[in-house]
Design a binder for these strands. Sequence first.
DNA 1: CGATTACTTGAATATCCTCAAGGAGAGTGG
DNA 2: CCACTCTCCTTGAGGATATTCAAGTAATCG
Lengths: 226, 226
Amino acid sequence: MYSNARAQKPRLTGELSSASGRLSVSHFNYGRGAEIFGEAEPAEYIYQVVEGAVRTYKLLPDGRRQIGAFHFPGDIFGLENGETHRFTAEAIVASTVRLVQRKSLDEVAQNDPAISRTILGMTTGNLAHVESHMLLLGRKTSLERVASFLLEMHLRSTSAGVLNLPMTRRDIADYLGLTFETVSRAMSELYRKDILKFEDTTRRHIVVVLDVQALAELADKRSQAS
Amino acid sequence: MYSNARAQKPRLTGELSSASGRLSVSHFNYGRGAEIFGEAEPAEYIYQVVEGAVRTYKLLPDGRRQIGAFHFPGDIFGLENGETHRFTAEAIVASTVRLVQRKSLDEVAQNDPAISRTILGMTTGNLAHVESHMLLLGRKTSLERVASFLLEMHLRSTSAGVLNLPMTRRDIADYLGLTFETVSRAMSELYRKDILKFEDTTRRHIVVVLDVQALAELADKRSQAS
DNA sequence: CGATTACTTGAATATCCTCAAGGAGAGTGG
DNA sequence: CCACTCTCCTTGAGGATATTCAAGTAATCG
């Protein structure tokens, strides 16, 4: 259920590399908090995180925010079929992003069924992730949500055990459908239960997972028949 | 935001019709509540509702359920890229379903880029729907959720004004991340506000929307600056 | 170094859930 | 045809979980 996102979202310099010569590629740097593209803007490019971290989200008119996904180096985002973006994308920290012109990708895909299949695969990967997230948002408790989040980050992480969480508590809250206070309380509870510890002193952006098993049990709780 | 699902999910006897001669198609009837396929089962077919209504859902180990979508005549469901289904699908009422063998569809798609594009378009349509639903599940109040649901059904409905809701209050609740009592209370509130009325006496499966504008305002509430 | 932002924790509140009761239609079998 | 059961829906009362409001600390940034 918490499948590795890196496996779902092939690097452009990976399964799409066969077409790289024919693609119009550029790079751009974004400062912390900078908008990469806005919801309903024309989708001229697709994007890949080279360095840093990106959040994609939707807003309600009164400002309530739902983050759909976090994107880390290697992840592709902003992949659209229609004319416009369905999300806003922002850099969480200073980030480098690779941009591929959609038009050039479409042209290449037209003649290369393998590219088409890769794009479909990435879209399906997004779909699978979002569908699991619906279950979390609709039916999990706050502690289960935070445990699920940490487990997801853990499974996506390259460095075993140590998680660098570049996003704020509010970002996490808006991803999990909670308030940042509730996220904070849940993290403290996991700390008290010796399931995780904080590597940095107080800002708590670096988390060490001590007990993955316990985290997984909390994330996907079954009826406690014991 | 509440785009017409029928436009997103082309009929098999529509945009895929050019390939219909080469597709292996069959039909099947399912009784009320019958399972069409189960989560994690091999995905041998893709499905289209001919008559009736279908729900697709995920379960947590302790039985909590999240319905991902409702499917009505013309809608396609069970479209997978991987080997297995990510949802369970059940008939809400006695239903007729068209089955298309995936293998035959894949073969046709291999040689026909238009079919590939149609499949990608359907997948993207699913993705767009689910992404909007995340915002609902993560950030909307109970009344906003029920209003959004009724508006979605209204926009998908063919007969203007009159909605036939074949699903139970519990189904609606599991779609909206609520309990069936909360759904019932919200419906009663909309009735008291003269936004809808019930066409049948007490079972309340047939709903007439009296004020679409009010429903839309509740569904996508902005800060009431007035 | 002062201001700002981010995080934690406590107390009070609100929203939604749980538990419960009652009614009404659909289906079944005598 | 009519009781009987079952399912579904509504509504009320009480309770639980998460939110809101608030205070205090610490790190970051200009």
